[in-house]
Design a protein around this nucleic acid. Structure first.
Length: 463
RNA sequence: GGCGCUGUAGCAAAGUGGUAAUGCAGUGGACUGCAACUCCGCCAUCGUCGGUUCGAUUCCGACCAGCGCCUCCA
């Protein structure tokens, strides 16, 4: 029962060995809170939440940290554009983020560090890097450039290990002009000066604010230690973000690796295209939740392997909803029961194989069917196993009855109204007035209500 | 130019050197007053062309098609 994970830095699946089995450490890059998050932001949250659940099932202790970046130029710009206090923006959108993630059935991480609450830690790390010759204050005649502190990429021989990039072979400055105060084109900012109007903190280099990459390095060190077990994030963060994190942490911590395992989820595209502002095709989690239960979004995310690209579309969401309906249908009417994870079952084994959630989900289906067919003790055992697996996946977390009867969308018939119609249809059936009975059924169907007759009576569900 | 990814049934998506899980949709049948639910069954030779092999979708090469990073980005 070994957990295998694809390690981006080794570019292969490896057996996972925690540094300390009693406290497995995982850090995942969280959002910059200047807007509602889109479905792409949700993917790492759901994926690593699932990994978190798997880890907790295996190890006695797991510490999972996911940060909130609440100081950033994008936030500052938004604050300026809207003339709203920066804290109001970050508070609003971090709260919204937690709400959205909760709707996706993600567990709260053990640690949620905010960048602005770790400024001293960051300053200290920059000082260490300067002392060790890995960073330098910008030497510039231009007033606005003074106060920048840069990481010296050439000072780190292993730079580029994660992304397998040789900076000399990159088209430096091909898309962005290289700032004149950089000693080397690939050097990146650790600390940047703030104007009077911008938020800033006093530092040995004047009033300023941290560079993005620095935040994660400092917060990881503070909360999880110098070397952690797993560091996760989106595929696009490999370069430069994670590469730079490695450079900062490794150089500040006497060459110790930042993370033993690097994991990256693939992108979510919309109808075949990358989400971008220019295309205007962002899908906000918040908006999607107006139309779909959070579990449907989670199901879609888990229905493909986390490393592959995923194409979001309405069809995908609708079909996922039908699938979940089917799954819930199997367990509807089965008494609620305690979950019991079968750690040697095929579903959990699939998860141990680099988080193969599609296979685990297929096992969910197999179990649900079996539950539906079994009776007595066998059914109870299967139901426990099903629950155990679905708890790890964070799916089927609702009461089936509620799943089918809660309103889906606006202007829906109330449960009372539906019951009323069912009574009327029952009467019509008893009177052998099938035309009327069918008419009522069709009427309900048109309102999104499906009737299911059985010997015990008529059951209804929304579709 | 550098680094890297993908191409499996209508759609979605696993997987393996020995003729391809699963779900949605479709379809034939059982059940039903008729349906729905459920149950039984059907529905792909894995981008193209070569190579290695007794045998390749799975390994290697070329090609075609799509895509990502190299700037902020999940």
């Amino acid at each position: 029962m070994n957990l295998k994970l694809y390690n981006s830095i080794a570019r292969e699946k490896q057996d996972f060995q925690p540094i300390d089995p009693h406290n497995v450490t995982m850090y995942v890059c969280g959002p910059t809170v200047y807007n509602y998050v889109h479905i792409g932001n949700a993917r790492p949250a759901v994926v690593f939440d699932t990994l978190y659940r798997v880890l907790r099932a295996i190890y006695p202790g797991v510490t999972y940290a996911r940060n909130i970046t609440d100081i950033d130029d994008k936030i500052i710009n938004k604050s300026n554009d809207l003339s709203i206090d920066i804290n109001k923006i970050t508070n609003k959108f971090s709260d919204a983020y937690f709400e959205d993630m909760l709707a996706l059935n993600t567990l709260e991480p053990d640690v949620i560090p905010y960048a602005t609450q770790h400024i001293p830690d960051m300053i200290q790390m920059v000082e260490t890097l300067v002392e060790k010759g890995h960073a330098y204050p910008a030497d510039s005649q231009i007033e606005a450039d003074k106060g920048n502190v840069l990481f010296s990429v050439p000072s780190m021989s292993k730079y580029g290990e994660l992304s397998k990039r040789n900076l000399d072979e990159q088209e430096a400055g091909a898309r962005v002009e290289v700032a004149g105060y950089k000693q080397y084109a690939g050097d990146f900012v650790l600390w940047k000066p703030s104007t009077e109007k911008e938020p800033g903190w006093d530092s040995p280099w004047g009033r300023g604010r941290p560079g993005w990459h620095l935040e994660c390095s400092a917060m990881i060190k503070k909360h999880l230690g110098e070397t952690i077990d797993i560091h996760g994030g989106g595929h696009d963060l490999i370069f430069p973000h994670h590469e730079n994190e490695i450079a900062q942490s490794c150089c500040a911590n006497d060459g110790k690796p930042l993370a033993n395992f690097w994991m990256h989820n693939g992108f979510i595209n919309i109808d075949g295209e990358k989400m971008s502002k220019s295309l205007g095709n962002f899908r906000l989690v918040r908006d999607l939740l107006q139309q779909y239960p959070g579990e449907v979004l989670r199901y879609v995310i888990l229905s493909s392997h986390y490393r592959s690209e995923q194409n979001f579309s309405k069809d995908l969401l609708d079909s996922a909803w039908r699938t979940l309906d089917s799954l819930y249908g199997f367990i509807r009417g089965v008494a609620p029961i305690e979950s019991l994870l079968n750690s040697s079952g095929d579903g959990f084994k699939a998860l141990l194989d680099d988080l193969n959630t599609p296979v685990a989900i297929s096992e969910l289906y197999r179990l649900a069917k079996a539950v539906n067919q079994a009776k007595g003790d066998e059914q109870i055992a299967l139901m426990q196993e099903l629950k155990g697996l679905s708890d790890i996946l964070g799916l089927l977390q609702q009461d089936p009855e509620q799943w089918f009867t809660l309103a889906r969308g606006d202007n829906q018939l109330s449960a009372e109204q539906i019951e009323h119609y069912i009574q009327a249809r029952q009467q019509a059936k008893q009177d052998k007035d099938f035309a009327k009975a069918d008419q009522i059924r069709q009427q309900l169907l048109d309102s999104g209500v499906v009737l299911e007759d059985s010997r015990e009576g008529t059951q209804w569900r929304r579709s």
